[in-house]
């Protein structure tokens, strides 16, 4: 029998994997992909609870999370393109110009 707890456990696993990926990887593009993983984990939680609590509000939240994720990826990739034009093959560690 499927319960919402299954969804929460899967979501926690995916979120942790994404968080470790953001901290470990150095390529800005792969770090963005790991952020997408974390957003999808949150979507899984919303969907599981929308089903478990029989409330359509969770699905509406997922809709807005998807829109914000799309906007975030568009702006983030534009920033990555702008940076890569100036310095070739930059990793996230090289971008410390704003260090205080």
């Amino acid at each position: 029998m499927l319960t919402p707890t299954y969804y929460l456990v899967l979501s926690a696993l995916v979120f942790s994997i994404g968080a470790v990926g953001v901290l470990v990887r150095r390529n800005p593009l792969v770090m963005f992909m790991c952020v997408e993983l974390m957003l999808n984990a949150v979507n899984l939680t919303f969907i599981g609870l929308a089903w478990g609590l029989n409330d359509i509000g969770g699905q509406v939240s997922v809709f807005f999370v998807m829109v914000v994720a799309a906007a975030e990826v568009v702006v983030g990739l534009a920033i990555v393109v702008a940076i890569m034009r100036r310095r070739d093959g930059a990793t996230a560690d090289d971008l410390s110009v704003l260090r205080g």
């Binding site: 919402p4 707890t5 456990v9 926690a12 696993l13 942790s16 968080a19 929308a50 478990g52 029989n54």
Partner: peptide, 27 residues
């Protein structure tokens, strides 16, 4: 990796302690 394991443990502890009340079923 330690931080990721800590996040996972925290989330699983919260899921374990939270009781989800409601009628799972057909939306």
């Amino acid at each position: 990796f330690v931080g990721g394991a800590a996040i996972l443990g925290l989330l699983l502890a919260i899921i374990n302690s939270a009781g989800i009340t409601g009628v799972p079923g057909n939306v």
